[in-house]
Amino acid sequence: MAEQQPSFDAAKYKHAQREQWNKDGAAWRHWNPILDRWYGVVTSQMLDLARIQPGQRILDIATGAGEPAVSAAERVGPDGYVLATDIAEGIAELALQVARERGLRQMETRAMDGESLDLPDASFDAVLCRLGLMYMPHPVTALREWRRALKPGGRVAVAVFSTPDRNSWGALPASTIRRRAQLPPPVPGQPGPFSLGAPGVLEGVFRQAGFTDPEVRAVPVPHRMASSAEYVRVAREAFGAFNAMMAHLPPQERESVWNEVESSLRPFESPGGFEAPGECLVGAATK
């Protein structure tokens, strides 16, 4: 008799995600200038593909510390409106602080599950989601909800990571942590950073959700810092998933794992600093 594979518990996963981002949100905001430097080109391409114009109503899903919602709010101007949502109420509050610091009154935030929107039908011109969809247990369900909230002809634009071989900044630490923490391989259906990155997958989920004319672009996102040690400092504080993977290890062992991660990344150092390869897929489609 074949051994039954463990199943993925979506509810438990979402609860853990909410807890993690409420805990790590302040660190993510602290490193926002670095993160915006890495992913700023992704944000601008998303806004272009979503065809965002002054005066529009925009919905941002899994906003984190406020991008691309803040950039969208600047683009729609004072006559437009941006609703930034996140499953974690704490980090959504941080996003609102960022908007207010920039004088953007046209942006609001709400805690909301991206797979189940408490929003009326056909109420937004565009939906954005930067680096969030691949962490959702049911991406097609999520996209169908976003489509419901869009006006006819409205646009969705998302960014996800491509494949592990093109994202050494994350794939190398994750493989080291998984080995040292003796974690089992991901179970079928489990979301993760590279779950939508294989060729054709993102176009497929757009079509399954009822969107038309999907367009996907590969965008290089090299992760640059002064050194591998400085990069690991960002990863330790802002990338909560890495810490969650080894939360069961004693502190001394976790420190040892981070030291090994730093060593594995040292080949990306040069006299000019540290640069680890990265690549996002930016995709858009129409209701």
Rank of each mutant, 00 (worst) to 15 (best):
A2L: 13
Q4P: 08
Q5K: 14
P6M: 03
P6K: 07
S7C: 01
K12Q: 14
K14Q: 12
E19S: 05
H30I: 00
W31Y: 15
N32S: 15
P33V: 06
I34Q: 14
I34W: 12
D36V: 05
D36E: 14
W38S: 00
V41R: 14
T43Y: 04
T43L: 09
T43R: 03
S44V: 12
L47K: 07
D48P: 00
I52T: 11
I61T: 10
T63K: 09
E67C: 11
A69R: 10
A72S: 09
D79C: 01
Y81V: 01
T85F: 06
E89G: 15
E89A: 15
G90H: 09
E93N: 09
L96M: 07
L96Q: 13
Q97M: 07
E101T: 12
G103Q: 06
T109N: 03
R110F: 07
G114D: 08
A122H: 12
F124R: 04
V127I: 10
L128A: 06
R130C: 02
M136H: 13
M136T: 13
V140I: 13
A142R: 13
A142S: 15
L143H: 06
E145Y: 07
W146P: 08
K151E: 09
G153E: 07
R155Y: 03
F161T: 04
S162L: 02
N167W: 03
S168M: 12
S168R: 13
W169D: 00
A171P: 01
L172W: 03
A174F: 04
R178G: 05
R179C: 04
A181C: 07
L183S: 08
P188R: 05
S195C: 08
L196T: 08
L196F: 06
G197H: 10
G197N: 04
A198E: 12
A198N: 06
P199S: 04
V201G: 02
L202W: 11
L202T: 08
F206R: 13
R207A: 15
A209D: 11
E215F: 07
V219E: 00
V221F: 01
V221C: 10
R224S: 02
S228A: 15
A229P: 05
A229D: 12
E230C: 07
R236V: 01
A238W: 03
F239Y: 15
F242M: 13
M246W: 09
P251F: 10
R254M: 08
V257S: 02
W258C: 07
W258P: 01
N259C: 00
S264E: 08
L265T: 00
R266A: 13
P271V: 12
G272Y: 09
G272A: 15
E275T: 09
E275H: 01
A285L: 11
T286V: 15
